[in-house]
Design a protein around this nucleic acid. Sequence first.
DNA 1: GCCGTTTTCGGCCCGACTGTTTTCAGTCG
Length: 573
Amino acid sequence: MENAEVARLFREMAELLEIEGANAFRVRAYRNAARVVEEHAEPVASLVEGDGRRLQELPGIGADLAGKIEEIVRTGSLAALSEVRRKAPKGAVELMRVPGIGPSRARTLAGTLGIRSVAGLARAAKAGKIRALPGFGAASERKILAELGARTAGERRISRAVAAQYGESVLEYLRAFEGVTRADIAGSFRRGRETVGDLDILVECADGQAVSDRFVAFPEVREVLAHGATRASVVLRSGLQIDLRVLDAKSYGAGLYYFTGSKAHNIAVRRLGQKRGLKLNEYGVFRGTRQIAGAREQDVFRAVGLPWIPPELREDRGEIEAALHHGLPDLVTLDDIRGDLQMHSTDSDGRGSLEEMAETAEAMGYAYIAVTDHGPMMRMVRGLDDAGFRRQRKKIDRLNAKLRKLTVLAGAEVDIHPDGTLDLTDDTLAGLDIVFVALHARLDLAPEKQTERVLRALTHPHVDVFAHPTGRLINGRRGAQVDFDRVVKAAVDHGVMLEVDAQPERLDLDDTAVRSAIGLGATIVIDTDAHSPNELRFMRWGVDQARRGWAEKKNVANTRPLSRFLKLLHASR
DNA sequence: GCCGTTTTCGGCCCGACTGTTTTCAGTCG
């Protein structure tokens, strides 16, 4: 039983209770429980033993929810959920997926018109049946039709790197507007999340209506969803939704804090404020009607008795407790990175030559890089064979003789065969400075077999780094299923480092995996897996992911100067 | 449904925009 499955059932329970009109706090308790279970590092199934006391140690899990978790783990289903499913109008849950339709309207649509699907909703709207319903009108019907028309096949969260391009261009557009003194992206983007559903942009401006007008006139706007003096919301042609909030100087920090989220984090901090008799909202921290903080984000934190918490940690995953006890991690930064350890050249599937990659890395201020072209198994990308790596080694030696500030390490990204053996001979591996191993094929092996495959590779004496350990692609494929704890422990025991691959569609390991790996004593490397000189710029995305995993500089091997990094490599061989 | 150094009962985060409203409910973030 996976935590995700428990979470899914609790979320469905929350939606059905909402439609039923249940107490909103009860609904929230289920949603909160779903999140807590989903983000818990170990399977909650392993906590189901004895009297359920261990389950109740999880925040927001009391006797009732502990019992329900136990029921799900033991039986695979939840009687209470089946019961509300029976009572709820069929199809109402699906209708809530349409923006603008919440529990109340879903209940009306499914209950009175008998609409059971999004397709049925479209038919009813086209037939003009919706405008006659209580609480609806012609405008609501039009909006529903527009929403349904705009729906595209792959409605997904977009990658952080893509969102950055749109966000930065809107920021530039707004900053150029007279009267705008500050503008920032907040929301999940600021928290460093690997994908974003929409972008939240804050501006400081005395004339809210004027900047809101300017915002909705952004050239790429396809649709205006809301357009007020403090808030506006648009959809770009790309389908990306952008929300704007206008704040004045004395509230800017509070607004930035508030709209950075996460929601769960904000609620927890607001509760801290309440205990001190304070009210927190997007305009500031208030004692009664008097504002005591708000201009700067750190003042908001200070008012509730906390140090400033980096946005990447604001997920209500223990950061508030850590902050209260002076235990916040000192997160790794992009500036800490001294070298990039995985990249490809034209010798395999890269688009930049060895020289071009090295020159770009040197210009970026790095002290070292490793070139890690593919081995022979990757035929479709022209991987190198043993002789090819020997020839490349000579080229790298000549290149190093010419370079002044940068050292190029000779490496390889070696495939792990399904039986756990490696794709290059031991002689070749011994001649390399750094050896990455990776899974590229047969990601579908059964967890037991996949784990054995990986363990065999990680215990090979020449292996230094396990590259993109799961092989997942964001919005693409799920990745290999392994016993993560066993893999991490083997890596720690054999001095193998775990990679955070900074490619925006990989970001593998992900945040929670980084955190549990570090907790188990693993050392991380963050690298770009660049296939062109430009992609060396991807490092920032990997650093963001590692920060979300609470990684400190000391946890990340490629923050070390070259001599200390090499010492680390040799120590493990 | 959870939770407690003011509470084991009675709270639970808070505000903006829209549309259908004659003062507010629903939805969203």
